[in-house]
Every structure is written in C-alpha cells, then in structure tokens.
Nucleic acid binder design. Structure first.
Lengths: 197, 197
DNA sequence: GTAGAAAAGTGCAACGACTCTACTTAGCGA
DNA sequence: TCGCTAAGTAGAGTCGTTGCACTTTTCTAC
C-alpha cells in the first residue's frame, strides 16, 4: 500500500504529486484558499499548471488529499461484521473506530478552520461523504435481500454519512457520534435543558 | 405576493428576469446544461451577460428559479404549530403539505432528468436544502430552550432537510416522506423483504 | 412639467479555473 | 541500443464571473 510498484518513474510521479499537494496546503494555510491561484501553486511546486490538473481533478481536491478507500472500508465494515452484530451496530463501531482519528494530524485546527471558513470547501467536504450513499445503501440492501433502491436502506446510509458533518467541530466527537446513532436506533428525543445557572 | 410593488420599473425588472430564466431553461432542456454558455442565454434573452449575473447568482441558479421563502415557511411551521403538536409532527405535516406539490409543473420529468444527469446541478440541488440547517435547527433549539448548537436539534434539522433528496424520483413521494419521518420518530427498522415471486 | 437621484442595463476588459493540442523529455523493457 | 510509453511543458483558448465606466430608463420631489 505504501509502495505499490517501486519503479523510478512511479516514485517521481508520487514525488511530484506530493510536492504539489504540499505547496498547495502551505499556501492555502498562509493566505487563504481564494487568495491562492493554481499558477501560484504550480510555481511553488515548480511544475506547469497543466501538471497540477494531471494529478488532481480540480482546485478543491488539492485540499483533500489522501481520502482514499474510505468507501471500501465502509463496505467491508458492513459486509464482514460479526454474525451476531446488527448492521446499525457494525456501522456505529466502525465510525467510532475510524472517524475520530481522521484529522488527528498536525495543523488539524488550522486545516479545519480553513475548510469551515471557505464555502466552496465546506460544500466539497460534505459531498465527499454523501457521494458514497449509493454504494453504502446498496450493500445494506444486499444484506437484507431487498432492492438497491429500498428507501430505508438509502435513508440509513445517507444519515450515517451525514455524521462527519454533524460531528465536525464538536468538543467530544465520540459522544456526538453516539448521540446520532442513538437517534437512528431509538428515534429522536427532545433535548433536555442544560443545567440552570 | 404576486404583485409586491407595481411600479413600471419593477415590472420590467421582473420581465427581464423571467425572460432570462425562460431562455435558460429552454436552452438547457434542448442542449443540456454544459452545452449552453451564459453568452447563449444572454443572446437568447437579448440582454448582456452582465445583466444575467445581476439577476442570478450563478449559472446553477438559472435552473432553480422560484425557490423563495421555503426557509421562512419552515420556520413558521415550527414556531406557529398547534400547541398540542410536537415539533416532529409539525414538520411532518408541513413537509407533506408542501413538498410533494413542488415540481408538479409541466416538463417536470424532463426537468428532473436534466438535474439528475448533471452532477453540478445535483450537488446544487442538495445544498439548496441543507443550507437551511442552521436556521431550522436554531428555531427548534429555541422551542426547547437549549443552545443553538444543540446536537439533537442540528441532527433533526439536517435529517429533515435531507428528505427532498431521499424522496426524489420515488413513485409515491408521500409514502416516502412518511417512512422517513417514521425512522426519525421510532428509530430505524430493518426493511421487510418484498413479496416472493 | 422638470431636475436630479436611483436603479437597470450595456460594453468591455480582466482574472482564474480548466481543457486541448502539439511537443519534449525521461524511464522502461526488449 | 531502440523504440514505446507515460510524465511533463508551453501556449492558446473557452467559459464563468467580476469590476468599471458609461448610457438609458424610471421614480420622486419640487
């Protein structure tokens, strides 16, 4: 996984990609997303602008590098769950095990701030998850032997994939995840008032 | 509401806006979204491209004209509900009363097809609703006297606003809406198998 | 009515994201 | 060593979008 095919060519290709991603993140954090052009990034990474688009599908994708195979992990969590575990519990456990550690890297605070303060990046980060709705709902439906467009399955998949957005910026992300799964499991309950002053 | 302030100026302004929207929809349905440029639309409506952007915030907004004051209707549905009605029920009723009739206009099928087959329009239509998450969750939280960032309130608002996306393209939209509210009310239940062949 | 403010619309230049095409370069495999 | 292929480049071009200076239309107040 770290070394898929160690040819000199692939190493150079990966290095170029990394140089672009690094330059982009650095400049974005320094100046803000909208104040950095593709040309700036290309110059900083010492490549042409065309090369940037060879490696990344667009400007937003430069911000969200390494988000690979989260989709396949989700699918696997459902399909390879313990036989006595419900799908909802399997998802809850997978989400608790996996998602809080994401964004646990250096500069996490600045990074989160960058995304939250840039509308186009907020929108992109939300779509990042919900685009898996179809594949997650498909595997859930398969487990129950119903059609892929089964509404309950689609809704569950969608609601689970909304969790990262809802839990973002919470002080206790794990508690937030648990609370949302409780809604999905037992239904929505009116919130209790916070302790009086 | 149909005639907010009948001055000649306002009438002409509304007329040009309508001319632009009509030209845009016609061209989009004829050729497809990506095959129509702003210039094409401006020419067809006999205005300059600058005028197009005076009336619409961007190209995507040309597709989704008349989506006004759905936000305020949502707020009102929660705040002005009957005193014996829960918030969840008030939302359910409002959604059932209001949303199925949307898209009940001519060319609905072609329009839906246009949106679903154009990724950027799909994304836009999903954001159209979820952008109200903050204001809807705020009013819900107010009704319970808790903070605006209360997780249960934010999650409920978000999930309700996902309903249009989930119910889109269903044969029986009302049943779909009911089913999703049932999940939110009583928790998620595994789907039953369809009748055997 | 008429003057002048206010707003709608125009034409044009510019910027940035992204694409395309033709070309060079560098690594690979025989 | 000889191509073949993939990575990278340069540059022109398209398109969405904005800003600016300007004209035209309509409203308002005298």
């Amino acid at each position: 996984m770290t070394v898929p095919s160690v040819s000199r060519r692939d190493r150079k290709k990966a290095a170029t990609r990394q140089a672009i991603a690094d330059a982009a993140l650095r400049l974005f954090l320094e100046r803000g997303y909208d104040q950095v052009s593709i040309r700036d990034i290309a110059d900083a990474a010492d490549v042409s602008t065309a090369t940037v688009f060879k490696h990344f599908s667009g400007k937003e994708a430069l911000v969200f590098d390494q988000d690979e195979d989260r989709e396949s992990q989700l699918i696997a969590a459902v399909r390879q769950r313990r036989s006595d575990q419900s799908i909802l519990d399997a998802l809850r456990q997978h989400v608790l095990d996996t998602w809080p550690s994401i964004e646990a890297h250096p500069q996490a605070a600045e990074f989160t701030n960058l995304v939250n303060s840039t509308p186009v990046l907020r929108a992109y980060s939300e779509r990042m998850w919900t685009r898996y709705t179809d594949s997650l709902s498909a595997v859930i439906a398969d487990e129950f032997g119903v059609g892929h467009d089964n509404l309950a399955c689609v809704a569950l998949a969608r609601f689970v994939l909304e969790i990262p957005v809802l839990a973002r910026g919470r002080q206790d992300r794990r508690a937030a995840i648990e609370a949302i799964f409780d809604i999905l499991t037992h239904g929505w309950e009116p919130p209790g008032k916070p302790p009086a002053p």
